[in-house]
Design a protein around this nucleic acid. Structure first.
Lengths: 117, 117, 117, 117
DNA sequence: ACGTATTTATACTCAC
DNA sequence: GTGAGTATAAATACGT
């Protein structure tokens, strides 16, 4: 269930995991799947790198956002007010969708609308 | 998917439905329209009230918990560590060991941990 | 910063913590504060017990809520619809508060309202 | 706390303020009232737009990250462990050791861990 | 340094 | 059993 070496089951034991790890170490063994453990390790590294890369980008954008707030503050605007404006504008469409959704749900619950219509 | 009393409410209008919803919401008892079903409506209102009552109680307890953490913090304890302690006590030891084993496997695969450490 | 033995500082070191732990173990030492480490330990236990007790209560209530939803479902109501009703009723007051809050914030930001009025 | 152009907007009414807010919200350019300040309003709108643009980008990247986790899961990796790996790599080792030390201290104090384990 | 607010992570539920 | 949506918990960030 953990390392994609083909032996994973929902009830994979710790010993199976350690075996898989040893497999990575020794480069030896029963690797019954098309994937070798070395491949699994490389896959793991690749995923980690991709995630970390994306998180960097995300952080950069978050910093940009903070910068905009700082700039606005420097222009005399109240940051808290600005945040409220942003939040409200985000909330409004969501809430409209919510209203429509609850209405639809009720129409279905009352048998007045086909469940997949 | 009809109302629990078996009646199939016919083609009611949107506004009538909204009115029925408002009735639930505001707790106004009278909805004389032939399209609304009194029994179902009362049942619905009862369920809503019971749930809201329980959620209030739940919130009160949640606030109490926060209060205890605050008090602990005021006594010099590290809140974050406290939370981890509570969480660990909830986990059964096998499960916890399993999770740690998986984590270690990954850390070793990434060279973040000695293979026999 | 961690154990309330009077020595805690924002820069408390690991060694200080271990020392405190040893203090608990040996029952010996320099405990310059009115609190002994035994007291700290007992405090810790007391906090943990209080929190766990409250969390049990909270869980019991959460289970009650689930029970009500189940009961409603048994009566033919759509659980999802019920949840939407509850959510909407909760949302409404919050959103009204949000509206007023943003307005107040703007009044302050525009200099038309005292900041603490 | 006045608007950044120094003007002290006099006693505007609530409705005028709401109108100003709506102007920002809807992007309607004309607000001919003498009580609204065009420069400040345009600045405000520009800030809001920049922030919202950046938040969209941030959300897109967040979705990408979720996608990578999904992909990893599809390859048999344990998502939760992966997240912990990412988190651990972000922590500087000293800080991590410190946190673990505090946790261990508490665990020992509660008898959940041998004093020399 | 604090409490609060936002964001993130985990657990649970339902439908497919 | 997998995946999406929801709900709760935890962690972090922010302004005071």
């Amino acid at each position: 269930m953990t390392l994609p070496d083909g032996t994973e089951t929902p009830t994979a034991t710790l010993s199976q995991l350690k075996e898989a790890l040893d497999t990575v170490k020794d480069g030896k063994p029963e690797a019954p799947s098309p994937y070798t453990n070395g491949v699994a390790r490389d896959q793991l590294r690749a995923f980690v790198e991709r995630i970390e890369r994306l998180e960097e980008e995300k952080k950069a954008i978050a910093d940009d956002i903070k910068g905009v707030y700082s700039e606005a503050k420097g222009c005399g605007f109240d940051t808290k007010a600005l945040r409220r404006v942003i939040a409200l504008r985000k909330l409004d469409p969501d809430e409209r969708a919510e209203q429509e959704a609850i209405l639809d749900t009720y129409l279905v619950a009352l048998g007045m609308m086909p469940e997949h219509g």
